[in-house]
Design a protein around this nucleic acid. Structure first.
Lengths: 301, 301
DNA sequence: TGAAATGTGAAACTTCTTTTCATATAATGT
DNA sequence: ACATTATATGAAAAGAAGTTTCACATTTCA
């Protein structure tokens, strides 16, 4: 059957990209429809239980049709429901030892408690962000960074901090890096850039008007854009060649962007480390291997 | 179902106590029929692969009928084939030697590995930093921040990022905050401040010459100084009213200050959260409680 | 050797999953 | 605001996967 063949291919693809199931769900969460979110929530809340359910049971538990769930797992890149539950069980098992903590600051908290919760929240954000990364994206990003004639950072408001940090870090490399805190100058910088260059754009919401202006300018010039944002559905994310998600543990909750900064920084840090290690070993094999990964996975989406 | 009961009775006294799936198969192996042994062998040889097969695939792979396999798993005491594969996947996963946290980047690392290690390292740094905090210091710091006429941030070089972030955060409060990236202006700012003010000084090493210059100026003016640094022994730390340590997991290793930034940010974040919660509840009881803590612990150090 | 017991696969049957299709809802352009 | 086009959704048909039945083969044991 044709379907069989189709599945065989898609399964291979999934295996390469695969990240923790929970990370995958988090990563795509805000692109999901209302009903699908109910399913996602349930799976996030107790993966272990959900992984043992049949599709019917899960449908009943989340008040949606089995059809919706079937489509949901496909959207998550699993070949079928069975593969999904297996993967879920897998990550659930890996997670069990650590308590999936639930920080929520209250006015009555002691100072030590506030500090502890803050740290815990940061850790959770990092974990969520890490789970949502995939090697394919990393490979593409590093390749673009390494080959860029100029590497420019863009970030306004709260994200200017992350942009500045990225600039600082990459200054230590042999790359030609640029960053300026001022919006107008960022815009001018964007206008100057070409297809040989690479831009790393950071924006928590992905909806900031000025940032989008810059991105449009970059797009017009054919600049390779790497985006770090918290919402995969944003226009910003759409325009990017590569998107990294800086996630916080609880999707719904708390003063926007407070914790995404840490995730943003660590994503930048990862990119930096990868770049350094790749540049320092400028041997051909490595680079071609990176290219292989890319070629191998390009025709998927 | 009755069938279930029937099987339990008809075959030998079932192994009731949970064992790893593989253990179960081994334990029952010699009681199995010839065909069933073929299935068992396959499952033992590579559980991970078998756990992903459908019953048909496994039947084909082991040259037996699906019926036999269905009976086989029942004999193993699983309710159905699906439960069997889940359990198999479980133990297979548990068997794979999972590397626990020993981050140390190497040139051969894959991109995903680099990213994972980077995140793990950040988490470790946060944990270490959190462990080093104590409530006493927090209380003192918050009290100084809340009562300051002006709250100024100081940080140069890499630490300017943390200082900027602190500035950004505290801008959201009703406090009067100040920060300027330029060293000369920071120095002038320091000269302007008085005993009514509070300064948050950030420096990874605590040995930066310019930063020390600023601190001396602050000290001369009797400004309350809160320091965030990685070395408790530094002159900077000595001059401070309160010192917070931003630790990295491994003190010895790696490009200085790379990970302390995250810790610095989270310390600032903690201070911010505490400040917000304390300011918003400007009730006397809380403040006096804070004072109590201080009085209570002052003669400790 | 023959009766009873056990093992086995084909196929019927049941249950689970996916796809189709009609409808409802939201987004978009005019 | 209205029509038109996407998108989302559940019911039900279609398709797979898994289980049980049944008829036949093999072994066991008197």
């Amino acid at each position: 059957m044709f379907t069989k063949v189709k599945f065989v291919f898609s399964r291979k693809g999934a295996a390469i990209i695969a990240r923790s199931t929970i990370g995958k769900i988090r990563g795509t969460y805000d692109q999901l429809s209302r009903t699908e979110k109910k399913v996602a929530q349930l799976a996030l809340d107790n993966p272990a239980v959900v992984s043992e359910m049949t599709i019917k049971e899960l449908a009943a538990a989340s008040n949606v049709s089995t059809a919706t769930i079937s489509r949901f797992v496909k959207r998550m890149d699993y070949a079928n429901y069975r593969e999904f539950t297996m993967a879920l069980a897998h990550t659930a098992a890996a997670m069990t030892p650590q308590q999936s903590s639930f920080p929520e600051l209250a006015e009555g908290d002691s100072l030590a408690t506030i500090a502890n919760k803050t740290f815990r929240f940061s850790v959770n954000s990092l974990r969520a962000t890490n789970d949502a990364l995939n090697e394919d994206d990393l490979a593409r990003a590093v390749l673009k960074i390494i080959n860029a004639k100029t590497l420019a950072f863009f970030g306004l408001g709260g994200s200017s901090i992350a942009a500045l940090d990225g600039y600082h870090k990459f200054l230590r490399t042999s790359l030609n890096v640029v960053y300026h805190p001022d919006y107008d100058i960022q815009l001018m910088q964007a206008a100057k850039m070409t297809a040989d260059d690479c831009a790393i754009v950071i924006s928590h919401s992905g909806r900031n008007h000025e940032t989008l202006q810059i991105v449009r300018e970059l797009t017009r010039n054919g600049v390779a854009i790497i985006v770090i944002t918290s919402y995969s559905g944003s226009e910003l994310a759409q325009a990017a060649a590569v998107t990294f998600l800086s996630l916080t543990d609880e999707v719904k909750y708390r003063s926007e962007g407070m914790y995404s900064l840490i995730s943003q920084l660590t994503i930048l840090d990862s990119l930096f480390m990868m770049t350094v290690l790749r540049i320092s070993s400028r041997t051909q094999p490595v680079l071609t291997r990176v290219r292989d990964v890319i070629e191998h996975t390009r025709d998927e989406s």
